[in-house]
Design a protein around this nucleic acid. Sequence first.
DNA 1: TTGCCATATCGTATATCGACGATAGACAAT
DNA 2: ATTGTCTATCGTCGATATACGATATGGCAA
Lengths: 109, 109
Amino acid sequence: MVKAKSQTCCTTSEKLALPDVAWAEDLAKLTWALAHPARVRIVRLLLNRESCVCGEIVEEMPLAQSTVSQHLKILKESGLVKGEIDGPRVCYCINADAMAKLKKLIADL
Amino acid sequence: MVKAKSQTCCTTSEKLALPDVAWAEDLAKLTWALAHPARVRIVRLLLNRESCVCGEIVEEMPLAQSTVSQHLKILKESGLVKGEIDGPRVCYCINADAMAKLKKLIADL
DNA sequence: TTGCCATATCGTATATCGACGATAGACAAT
DNA sequence: ATTGTCTATCGTCGATATACGATATGGCAA
């Protein structure tokens, strides 16, 4: 379809430093945590509510408790979410530092 | 370990509108495109170079040409990257609109 | 202790990812 | 037309994601 004339493309061809691999892995890890609609919704939920026990999250999602628990585990592993034991429940909340890091990495893209 | 006293958690408990499902899927689709270090590096490469033919990307990455092509396909499907046929080559570049959308969605989290 | 509740983990099935080599298709040059 | 180059797609493999129900764990209350 689109047929560009030669040389209209690829404006800069000087040698480019390879983007830092560790940095790419950092960002990929954080974005991967958000790479599923259920996890996006969980994060939104936590941001709206400040914090939230697991059971409330399960109620809001059309997923089994065990599935939600797995998503929460992934979010915890990414660092985006923290979980604190609060008696018989677990209270989840956003890790503001990790969220800020994600926002900065994306904004600086 | 960390043992919060009851009621120090879950500060807001009013009814919360379910985050928009379509919106969550939108963001998940974009973040998923970046959820792999190789794709993050490709995006960085394209941002640095304005545009870039496929072959140059392959040279920068420790991956087979077919693998890079697959990652590019995923990036195209997410909308983050556009590819224009330029004679025998394909010139890839960032879709600024999609990138702006991603940045806004993340910033507004 | 016993039982109850909330959460995590296990086990399993299916689907998708991510990698590669091989091959097909498109285009330019000869 | 033939050849060579560049890119996309196919086929395949192992690894991992995602979902669920069943079960284990941990804390609280009686």
